[in-house]
Nucleic acid binder design. Sequence first.
DNA 1: CGGCAACTATTCCGCGTGGAATAATACGCT
DNA 2: AGCGTATTATTCCACGCGGAATAGTTGCCG
Lengths: 194, 194
Amino acid sequence: MPRLNPLAVAALAVLVEQPMHPYEMYQLMLQRREDHVVRVSAGSLYRAVERLAADGLIVEHATEREGNRPERTVYAITEQGRAAFLETIASMLPDHVNEYPEFPLAVGEAHNLPRDRVVELLGERAEQLRATVASLDAGLARVDAKGVPTRFVLNKHYSRAMVLAELDWVLATIDDLTTGALDWSSPHGPHPVA
Amino acid sequence: MPRLNPLAVAALAVLVEQPMHPYEMYQLMLQRREDHVVRVSAGSLYRAVERLAADGLIVEHATEREGNRPERTVYAITEQGRAAFLETIASMLPDHVNEYPEFPLAVGEAHNLPRDRVVELLGERAEQLRATVASLDAGLARVDAKGVPTRFVLNKHYSRAMVLAELDWVLATIDDLTTGALDWSSPHGPHPVA
DNA sequence: CGGCAACTATTCCGCGTGGAATAATACGCT
DNA sequence: AGCGTATTATTCCACGCGGAATAGTTGCCG
């Protein structure tokens, strides 16, 4: 069976704790800022839950109704679901796959722009990255004050390290561009990488 | 108008050099290892080219035919296309957007696995990352030997820096797990981040 | 107490992706 | 010469995603 997609993993992660209906999962994910880690949209979540049910990784646990509202289906994780959840995490941890972020593309085509423009744009990015670090630090300070153990926010620590590394690279590159260590002449020459 | 998607940018990038038919773009991208930077599949490329033509960013330059083969439509970039290409690059460079990589999700759910397992899996990732660095270094050495200026392979330098940073974090985390500096007890407790 | 904004809860639809299908030709091997 | 495989070149289809639409309900402000 193919590896679960990120949203399915996030869905199983909340169902590991207790049975829930999809909208409750949705709210819980937003409350926990899971939407910073996984693309969470209500529409996609309902479809993901349907697929998990079809594959037997979750089962209908109960169907409730309040007033004239649509019927809520509460789902519970199955043993198969728990196994698939753990397997997927265990397969994602060691495997470094290319996910084609946009920035390397922009960097790879930056030679089409004038040097000064690139310096300016990278400067803006540096500021953004600094703001991101500050926001991550604030979040980490908040949960730390609540006494949340580090292992529950390990991903935030990882993200912080990565953003800092990118900031370092951007600043170093700006430097190389301004000092001239990184040559930027003949902007309209033919692409020489063959 | 909305920002061009990565494949459209890559397509315009090759059309900036000279008019081409889609399959030629496809081959050129593979030859230049653009498929390491952007998701390139023939099917998607043809659709992307259709859309670019519909939006007036490229135009039919000629239609050729050899023997009984399907007719090849050669496209050329327009002034609008060139402008959109440069604008998109210029908008991607400063903007740091979350693209939801899988690894942070796995790290965030790793507390569901036993500590020793996590150490083992992260060790495997470290090895993979080292191999990736080696492969990037080999590629950079190859183009350097050809005398290709650095600015045409800036993205490879960026990737190398990021992979190294991730390797650092993984090794440090393995260390924290083995020394016990990073607590891993009560693996089945309730999720405390609310 | 009337209306309107926000929340609860789910379904629907259009779009882009990527792999498969198609089909003709070139190439290599015996 | 004949056969199979790789290459050239494009189209098609199934699927997942995410934003919009829907619809009832609660809360709030004047």
